[in-house]
Design a protein around this nucleic acid. Sequence first.
DNA 1: TTGATTTCTTGATCTAGGTCAAGTGCGTCG
DNA 2: CGACGCACTTGACCTAGATCAAGAAATCAA
Lengths: 189, 189
Amino acid sequence: MTDLEQYLQTYFDFDQTDLVTVASFFKPEILKKGDYYLKTGKLCNKLSFIQSGMLRVYVDLEDREVTQWICTQGYFVTDLSSLVFEKPARWNIQALADTAIYTIDKHDYDRLGEYLPKWPVTEKLFIAHCFTTLEDRVFSFLSMTAEQRYNLLFDSHRDIFTQVPLQYIASMLGMTPETVSRIRRKQLN
Amino acid sequence: MTDLEQYLQTYFDFDQTDLVTVASFFKPEILKKGDYYLKTGKLCNKLSFIQSGMLRVYVDLEDREVTQWICTQGYFVTDLSSLVFEKPARWNIQALADTAIYTIDKHDYDRLGEYLPKWPVTEKLFIAHCFTTLEDRVFSFLSMTAEQRYNLLFDSHRDIFTQVPLQYIASMLGMTPETVSRIRRKQLN
DNA sequence: TTGATTTCTTGATCTAGGTCAAGTGCGTCG
DNA sequence: CGACGCACTTGACCTAGATCAAGAAATCAA
């Protein structure tokens, strides 16, 4: 079983045949550090799985950048609203390091249902799971302090902290780099 | 065409036959002010459409309540993660006023695909739309001040401001009632 | 290696928004 | 009607976290 098949299995309860079918639509690709996976305003006609490396999802405002999320090894990346609704992409997505991904293009993605009868259900569960994750994130902004949000992210995505420049972590937590630096120091006692 | 059919049409591009089919699964219900549509920890086995009135989605913390959202006329309400994954509900959902809803139970909801071939696609688009809405909301916390978030909500959901106690609006915006009160005064110049 | 550049840390100060407390208005119920 | 209880407002003060600025460390180029 390939890496990709193994990872797909952890997300979806496909049997071996389905796994091979789905995996066959994904093509390996390499992004060099700094390369863009997607730029704001373009159409995102692909979905990718990250085998190694990291991608930063962000937007440019007049006076600064806002990082929405960092996608790491073992997760999927796309601009969902662009992929699904065929609207201009909301986000820039850029490689923070050399990154190996497997990509399925929209054409094939939209046809997965023809090969896998249970794809529509699987896809729904996948998007619903993404929804729930964001719901948690909104809740964290409604109910937690900067330090609590830092700890929550640290406990759930430790890999981000070891590899991602602190300024981006700060932005995705909705605080300044100085604040993250101070919280980090405090955590070391 | 009934109210419900009309509303369904604004969400989904069903033809007349489909509209009637879907609508027939929804049963009218009345919640009195203060009644609970759902309580944390229960299973949410229904999805409803709000014909009139309002529901507040919130959680109890040790020392306070956090309002996640207010659902108003013309919108759907459910606990998506509970409905889809059959997990205990994350939210309390309580009527803020006498509220008229149309409810489909999970049993029927899960079978919509048997009657409507394009239901799986429609459902996916619906959930993806919810995801995108939350993405915007996360972005608002990452990039906006309290006053900017207030204005954003005011411009997009004016009905909430005319009918909902200010303390709940404050909570769902992630600020205190005092702050909302001050912003509101400022907006009156 | 060395200098240049970027990123991170730390301190000093500032401010948006929170907290606390004392009203004020108003709807409801006896 | 009057009084109780909410919900909201307003002021005084406080604090988490932002801003600004100056170094220190790490990263990179050559």
